[in-house]
Design a protein around this nucleic acid. Structure first.
Lengths: 202, 202
DNA sequence: TCCGGGATTGACTGACCAGTCAATCTGTAC
DNA sequence: GTACAGATTGACTGGTCAGTCAATCCCGGA
């Protein structure tokens, strides 16, 4: 098993190196040799474990997105108010960024927001997240907790768009980063989307 | 002037062709010869009018973004409630998409959401839009129309993120398109961000 | 100790494509 | 009608890089 163990480690080594390189240089502007160098591994070994450069990014995205989808599903099974469900989802994504900002940067910049390339390839996976969020909104509307003049699809887009935009703000250094900011962000996103920006009373 | 006129037209012809090609194939995956072919113009002529492939995209982005920034500024000078200001901005962006979906797709996909390449180059321009939206929120908070526990920076991100995500929904065919949908979208975005998803009363 | 096969190496190739440039065209001015 | 300048052409070059492949390494079993 020591052999297989070593093999798995090398594969992981390459994936982790790819995250750093993609985050730093971008998928299109980096070379496969950059990834090999970063992983301290020979060029050819990359092609021993992956069929192509694309497959590396695909693997990174699918691994992580699957975890996200499972998390959303898990949240939706809990018997908590819709606002808390959305808080849990926003929290999960924010914590993902806190835990591995480079990976989340790669997923957002190179896949989620890249309509022409990988975004198109992984559209079904991405759409799945919207559908699950919309389902939460739909249920909240049936339970008369959410207003029903905003369609669930729209609400899901607005919510996910706000979350991703905040991550983008951190990625671009447009918003301050830090543990405090990450915690605040979870609350602020949900307050904005669920409560609205306007004051309720005079 | 006939000569100059012709020259201007050819330049415009190339820019318009580039929009179509970038929208269809993406900036990184298309060739300069694709743009020349689309414009029915010789390869070399592209380099007579533009220094590089990058400069074509830069030109397209800056032209349009400048119009957006002016529109936001103009909206902010009007003496109307903040909700109407945000409605006007969302409306302007939605109408831009309605008027030229391919151009907006290119700007969003290849610039606004491309943190590693053009997004980085044009960060100051992009940031300017957030700043101006945040200023509107800030004023609304001082006038006690908006609650002040959500920072203006966050509110601006959430608002802009929601708008861009809806456009992305249209681009990806995740949301239905059409004149009716475009008009509804303006209202729904503002309702979500200003009013919030939750019902106010019981 | 030797053998077999997966792991690892890195030089090489073939394709692709941005950008150059010398030649040609076309309209204007005199 | 001639000369000039800017517009237009497209073949060509130089560099880049994804992916291949034959050679070598190294471990575990017989």
């Amino acid at each position: 098993m020591a052999r297989t163990q070593a093999a798995v480690d090398k594969r992981r080594l390459i994936l982790d190196a790819a995250v750093r390189v993609f985050a730093r240089q971008g998928f299109h502007t980096c070379r496969v040799s950059d990834i090999a160098d970063e992983a301290r591994v020979a060029y050819g070994l990359v092609y021993h474990y992956f069929k192509s450069k694309d497959e590396i990014l695909d693997t990174l995205f699918l691994e992580r997105w699957d975890i996200l989808l499972r998390a959303i599903t898990e949240v939706d099974t809990q018997e908590i108010p819709p606002r808390e469900k959305l808080y849990a989802i926003a929290g999960f994504i924010v914590d993902s960024y806190r835990h591995d900002p480079e990976l989340m940067k790669v997923i957002i910049v190179e896949v989620t927001r890249a309509a022409n390339t990988f975004g198109r390839t992984h559209l079904p996976q991405i759409r799945q997240a919207y559908i699950q969020i919309a389902a939460i909104v739909d249920r909240a509307q049936r339970e008369r907790i959410f207003r029903n003049d905003v369609t669930p699809d729209f609400a899901a887009m607005a919510f996910y768009g706000a979350v991703e935009q905040v991550l983008t703000g951190w990625i671009f250094s447009l918003l301050p980063v830090g543990d405090r900011e990450y915690e605040d962000a979870k609350t602020l996103i949900v307050e904005t989307i669920c409560g609205g920006l306007e004051r309720v009373e005079g």
